[in-house]
Each structure stands twice: as C-alpha cells, then as structure tokens.
C-alpha cells in the first residue's frame, strides 16, 4: 500500500475505518480496520459477498452512514463537508426516478435543489442526456423507458451537477446480462470522457475486472478488505478483452481473494 499521507491526487482516504451498527441482537461490525487510498481518476470496484460491508463503505464515503472508528476523508474533507461541497454523485441499485417527473425533470431534480438557474438546468440536462446516449428522451416519463435506459437516466442525474466522484452501488445488478454488458462498455467510455473518479460496488467478478483500475476484495463478519488488486489491463478495453489471459488471471486472483476471506463457505 501507499504511504499514509494525503497527496494532491488522493480523492478518498480511509485509515483504520470501523463502523458498528447497534442492533437489538447486539453490535454488528459492518466494517473493521479498513485502509484504502483512492486516487483521482481511479475506477475502484468493491467486490465481496453480501454482508462484507462494501455498500456500507460506499455509503460512508457519501456520508449516508457515519463511521464509529478511524478517519475517512473525501477530497481532503470530512464526508459531510464533502457532500455539502457536492463532491459526489450517487447511483443506487434501482434507478429510483420519480414517476411524476419526465426524464429531463428527474435530471433537473438535483439542479433545482442546488439552485442552478433555469437556463443552466436546461443546458446541463441536454449535456448529460447526450453523455448517456439518451438524446431525445427528455420528455418521456420513466415508465416509457426500459430498465437499462432508466438506469442510464439515473446516471445522467448523478452526473448533472458535475461532481468529481461518481459512487455507484450495484447500478446494473437488476439488469440482464446483455444490457449489463452494453452499459459496462458505455460506462467505461463515459469514465474516459469525463475523467471522474468512480467507486463501484458489485458482486460480479467479470464486471469488477472489466471496469476497474483497482479492485477491492472484501469479506464479511466483520466487513474488511482482504485484497486490493491494481489492474494491469490497459485503460482502453474492448469487450473481448475479457477473453484475454491477463483478464482471466486477474479474475482468478479476485476469486482467490474471495475464497480466502470467506473460509469454506464459497
């Protein structure tokens, strides 16, 4: 791992991070002693079985959960302050578009709340609709779009206010494989074009390997990091890279990491 001081290129930094939920069955250690540095422009995937704390970690970065131990900084700030500074856009597992708003209206939602002018709202909506390949769909209502298109609209919504960080919590988990492949490819293009830092939670090994520059393997009870793999794949990745030897080797290492962290349960 890298040194522990925050450098200019560091976007997310966790040191000795722990998060314990108090439940009626006693404390649950969702995260324990998590150390991680994410640099600007990284595409970081968090992979692990359910209960390994990958979503909790992402939510802690977004200040939706609050760590009980250790330190966590986002853009050098406390997560709460980073949120107020609009440091990140968050994409949930479900698109979560408001059914009473059109696609354009949904993308405007964060812009309205953040107080952008009407003219700028319109301009930004057009821009992000183009980014996710949904030009001309602004006037449609969510139910008129397929699941994959809805999820693209929700990515557009997260991009609308130009945050440097994009946090995605299993965004394609509910979609079928074919749609997922295409969206993965598009996400990589988007990432290349916008140079965002992306945190991406998944439980698909091929998805994690295909997308990431850094793969964080996690294991449950307590939720912790068992391996951090720096991908050796080039940044330009056609879909058929998944048949390459390098890809298969990285996937193998991820699988080993998952198995090691999980005992005999896999």
């Amino acid at each position: 791992m890298k040194d522990t001081t925050t450098t200019a290129g560091t976007v997310i930094e966790a040191r000795g991070l722990g998060l314990t939920f108090q439940t009626s069955d006693g404390p649950v250690h969702a995260l324990k002693d998590v150390n991680l540095t994410v640099d600007k422009g990284d595409f970081v995937s968090f992979i692990g079985p359910s209960g390994c704390g990958k979503t909790t970690f992402l939510r802690a970065i977004a200040a939706l959960e609050h760590p009980t131990e250790g330190t966590l900084t986002v853009n050098g700030m406390e997560p709460d302050a980073a949120r107020q500074a609009r440091a990140y856009g968050y994409v949930f597992q479900a698109a979560g578009l408001y059914p009473w708003r059109t696609i354009a209206g949904n993308i405007k939602l964060p812009l309205e709340i953040m107080g952008f002018s009407k003219a700028e709202q319109k301009e930004r909506v057009e821009k992000v609709l183009a980014l996710v390949d949904l030009e001309g769909f602004g006037k449609k209502f969510p139910w008129q779009l397929s699941g994959g298109m809805q999820q693209r609209a929700s990515i557009a919504r997260a991009l609308a206010f130009d945050a440097d960080i994009l946090l995605m919590d299993e965004p394609f988990g509910a979609l079928d494989e074919i749609v997922r492949d295409r969206l993965n490819e598009e996400l990589l293009k988007l990432w290349a074009r916008t140079e965002k830092t992306i945190g991406f939670v998944t439980h698909s090994i091929p998805e994690a390997v295909y997308l990431s520059t850094k793969i964080v393997v996690m294991s449950p009870r307590p939720g912790r990091i068992t391996d951090v793999i720096e991908s050796t794949l080039p940044r330009q990745r056609p879909l058929d890279i998944r048949d390459s030897r390098e890809f298969i080797e990285i996937a193998h290492r991820v699988r080993e990491g998952l198995r090691a962290g999980h005992g005999d349960e896999v």
């Binding site: 107020q84 979560g96 408001y98 009473w100 709340i113």
Partner: peptide, 27 residues
C-alpha cells in the same frame, strides 16, 4: 429509504424533501 437517501446526497433539507418528494408521492 432509497429515495430519501438520494435527496440526502443532494444535501436537500426538509422543505425540499417535502416539496419535491413527499407531497408529489402522496397524491
């Protein structure tokens, strides 16, 4: 919870949550 979390990520206050999410959803 997800829809409420989404507004939280925009740092939306109670008034915005009421106006933009709760009231339309309750129609």
């Amino acid at each position: 919870a997800m829809q409420l979390d989404l507004l939280k990520t925009y740092n939306a206050g109670g008034w915005d949550t009421l106006r933009k999410l709760r009231l339309p959803a309750s129609m």
